[in-house]
Write a protein that binds this DNA or RNA. Structure first.
Lengths: 116, 116
DNA sequence: ACTATAGTTAGCTTTATGGCTAACCAATCA
DNA sequence: TGATTGGTTAGCCATAAAGCTAACTATAGT
């Protein structure tokens, strides 16, 4: 599935750093490589992974390859998280309602006990 | 870092399914295992990974281990994504402003050209 | 006490990940 | 045209991931 690859791509600090850099705009492979101590081929691998996850797109013109962020892929993750949040918040709401109900019952029981 | 493990944990469909199940409330290891064809020890490994990522907590009472979602860990991811979104949206805003500026300039140039 | 249930441990395989070097194109620039 | 720059391929290594089976422990139920 798509999510596997997006989450997988984001599970590495180097790749998250690349994504963060690309949030600020396009960059060439060389530019992306500068902040890292890594050998170029290693970094290229990360870029490949980011590309195959759909998080990054790149195009080569002349001898330089420009990379750019594909924000839709990040949005996919946001959507998934939002969906989970909705489910667990609904549940917490139900739970809260349930607790409220219990409290009221308890109160009315207390009244009954007093009036006995 | 924490994010590495959370993203890593979520990069597997089985584990995401477990998380989704836990959004609906606590569950024992056995309950969690039911929907999968996997052998128990394999599934346990996933649970361990979810635990060490902070996404899931579990406690054993008697012979059953109950697992529950730790929503803060998911929130961490949401926060990271939101931060990235903010950066790239700011940039897009700046870009838009820049384009607007260019358009205006173009208009005034057109006026100049006409009035020549 | 005996059996069944619910997990757990240990150890094995296969495949993927993250890193490296060395050698290799292909565009520019001088 | 020759050197430099920017990236790419190929191949190696160590470690981690994802799955399995088999055997074990510890609680509950009868």
């Amino acid at each position: 599935m798509q999510l596997d690859h997006v989450f997988g791509a984001l599970s590495d600090a180097t790749r998250r750093a690349i994504v963060m850099r690309l949030c600020d705009g396009e960059a060439s492979v060389g530019e992306l490589a500068k902040p890292f101590e890594m050998a170029l081929p290693s970094l290229m691998k990360h870029i490949r992974i980011l590309e195959s996850s759909g998080l990054v797109a790149s195009e080569k013109t002349g001898r330089v390859r420009m990379c750019s962020l594909q924000t839709e892929a990040l949005a996919t993750v946001e959507v998934w998280l939002a969906a989970q949040r909705e489910i667990w918040e609904q549940r917490l709401d139900r739970l809260e309602m349930y607790v409220e109900k219990l409290k009221k019952k308890e109160k009315s029981n207390a009244r009954k006990r007093r009036s006995k």
